[in-house]
């Protein structure tokens, strides 16, 4: 299995032979040979690293996060393939399984949330779903963001929206929220009870009444918010069950 992506001694030899056969510039060939050599060395280093630090990755969420950030900075995705070089670190199964659980938890909650959930709540649910055993190492919100990001390639839902003040909303219904809708969600997530009025939205977002009413009607139309009209004289309040602090899921 290891040999799949590497070059064996025989192939290495063939490559050398090829080099002398080609009339092309030696520079390109030697660059490729150079890279091949580097790959082998890198892979060994990676395996050494894995032996030494696999536990650190498993146990230390900060380490995991640092690792992911550094990879992103240099332009590699260690989770791109379950069979890649990086799989020796054993992170793949952790994140791919987390991905499965994110899908399952979101779909199960959709009936009561309408398809949107705060990241912190998603995390609590995932921890509950995974159980208390210590082998289920602590998951952080960053871990979930990484797993959810990978799900994006499936093209429907599992989009994460930042809504300010370090909060995120995870959407798991098909179709993207428009910018209007996610702006409204942002305002709502910063209200203590998760409720807004047209007036409040107009003030905070600087929109016209027409634009605001249209956007909020659309949100109600998608089943994301409930209308609260205690009497016909005052303007309604709009509530998001996914942001309501008193909500309990069955």
């Amino acid at each position: 299995m290891r040999r799949r992506a590497g070059l064996g001694a025989i192939q290495q030899q063939q490559l050398e032979t090829q080099k002398y056969k080609d009339k092309g510039s030696l520079i390109e060939d030697s660059q490729f040979v150079q890279m091949t050599k580097h790959m082998e060395i890198f892979r060994e280093k990676l395996e050494e690293f894995a032996v030494k630090h696999k536990q650190d990755i498993r146990k230390n969420a900060q380490f995991r996060r640092q690792f992911q950030e550094m990879c992103a900075a240099i332009g590699v995705d260690p989770l791109a393939s379950g069979k890649g070089f990086w799989s020796v670190l054993g992170m793949g199964d952790f994140y791919y399984e987390l991905g499965v659980q994110v899908v399952e938890v979101c779909l199960a909650s959709n009936p009561s949330t309408g398809g949107i959930m705060e990241l912190s709540e998603l995390r609590r649910k995932l921890i509950a779903a995974r159980g208390q055993k210590s082998i289920h190492q602590e998951i952080t919100e960053d871990d979930i963001l990484i797993a959810a990001k990978k799900l994006k390639i499936f093209g429907n839902g599992f989009v994460v929206y930042p809504v300010g003040k370090g909060k995120y909303m995870v959407q798991s219904i098909p179709g993207e929220l428009s910018r209007e809708e996610s702006s409204i969600l942002g305002v709502a997530s910063n209200q203590e009870q998760g409720s807004v009025t047209v007036d409040l939205l107009m003030k905070q977002l600087g929109w016209t009444e027409f634009r605001t009413q249209q956007a909020i009607d659309k949100i109600v139309g998608e089943g994301l918010a409930w209308v609260d009209c205690p009497d016909s004289n005052s303007a309604p309040t709009y509530w998001f069950p996914s942001l309501f602090p008193g909500r309990k899921d069955t």
Binding site: A5, L7, M39, C71, G84, F85
Partner: peptide
């Protein structure tokens, strides 16, 4: 430059393994 078919295939496979 003259990079052979084999090498190209290998190269792509390296890229995928690295996650590039």
């Amino acid at each position: 430059g003259e990079i052979s078919e084999d090498e190209t295939v290998q190269f792509k496979s390296y890229l995928m393994s690295m996650g590039i």
